[in-house]
């Protein structure tokens, strides 16, 4: 697995027949956590040809309540069906009072939050019998009450639960820009042994002219500073499966493959220097 793409149903035929060294696909697990039907069949056909990663967007790892029994049952069923190469979700919370907020919400990084997150992850990993990679979120606000940095929190979480890390380099760039910390320092603080996958994506300026935030939109090509951060990370830790994320304004499959070829070349070049 070198560079992968997010799988879009509209690209099914092209994805199925695509042949490229190291190509793999990632899907949002929740879209396929259903009883059956053509979408699930498309994923099963895809996994016959390519390695597939199940990327969750709804586990709500940083919640006091554990994931629901129905959610876990469906995730387990899907994992058994697909035998994914990688499984992952986000360092965030989504559920509150019966509502699922479809975003990755921030929280104070306390020992208490760490305990909840580690318990929830352990529960899922025990059920699945495999580790989950946890992705760093995009941050837009400075929450008060942190007891540790995000990298310290992630490292502790990996130590307590046995999870790995999915480093979203674009999210590091977005958070660093919005909150005013050094993206380079963040990247340099990630232990190589924990990183199992990398995401790169595009971001956009906030639509509000009075705002200086940048938004993790997944709606633009990967920017040059994000590629530079990416090279900094893999230059130190070596190559990892890398996903080009694109969820809005989705271009033609060929354009995504061209962007993917760039990441693939970087990975192969990195492998040459890490033997």
């Amino acid at each position: 697995m070198t560079a992968g793409l997010g799988f879009k149903l509209q690209h099914f035929a092209e994805a199925l027949t695509a042949r490229a060294d190291g190509l793999w696909f990632e899907v949002h697990a929740e879209n396929y956590m259903v009883d059956g039907g053509p979408r699930l069949a498309a994923l099963m056909a895809l996994r016959e040809r390519h390695a597939v990663s199940l990327h969750g967007v709804g586990l709500s790892i940083v919640s006091a309540d554990p994931p629901s029994a129905d959610y876990l049952r469906r995730l387990q069923m899907l994992a058994e069906r697909v035998s994914p190469a990688i499984m992952s979700d986000h360092l965030a919370w989504q559920k509150w009072g019966g509502t699922h907020h479809s975003d990755f919400l921030p929280f104070p990084r306390t020992r208490e939050a760490l305990g909840f997150a580690a318990d929830n992850l352990s529960r899922v990993q025990d059920l699945l019998g495999r580790p989950i990679l946890v992705e760093n979120p995009s941050l837009y606000m400075d929450v008060s009450g942190h007891e540790m940095s995000e990298t310290e929190f992630l490292i502790e979480l990996a130590f307590l639960s046995g999870c790995g890390l999915l480093v979203d380099v674009n999210n590091v760039f977005v958070s660093a820009s919005n909150l005013g910390f050094s993206a380079d320092d963040y990247i340099d603080a990630l232990p190589a042994a924990l990183v199992g996958e990398i995401h790169v994506a595009g971001h956009s300026p906030d639509g509000d002219p009075n705002s200086s935030l940048i938004i993790d939109s997944h709606g633009a090509p990967v920017s040059d500073p994000v590629w530079r951060l990416y090279e900094r990370l893999v230059g130190r830790i070596g190559a990892r499966p890398t996903l080009i994320e694109r969820d809005t304004d989705i271009p033609a499959f060929a354009d995504l493959m061209a962007e993917r070829a760039h990441a693939h070349a970087l990975i192969r070049a990195t492998e040459g220097t890490h033997v």
Binding site: S63, A64, W96, F107, P108, T110, A113
Partner: peptide, 16 residues
């Protein structure tokens, strides 16, 4: 109430 729950309660009400 735990610190996390009280933060999430305030955050969720700000979202609404």
């Amino acid at each position: 109430m735990s610190d996390l729950l009280s933060f999430q309660r305030r955050f969720a009400s700000a979202l609404e």
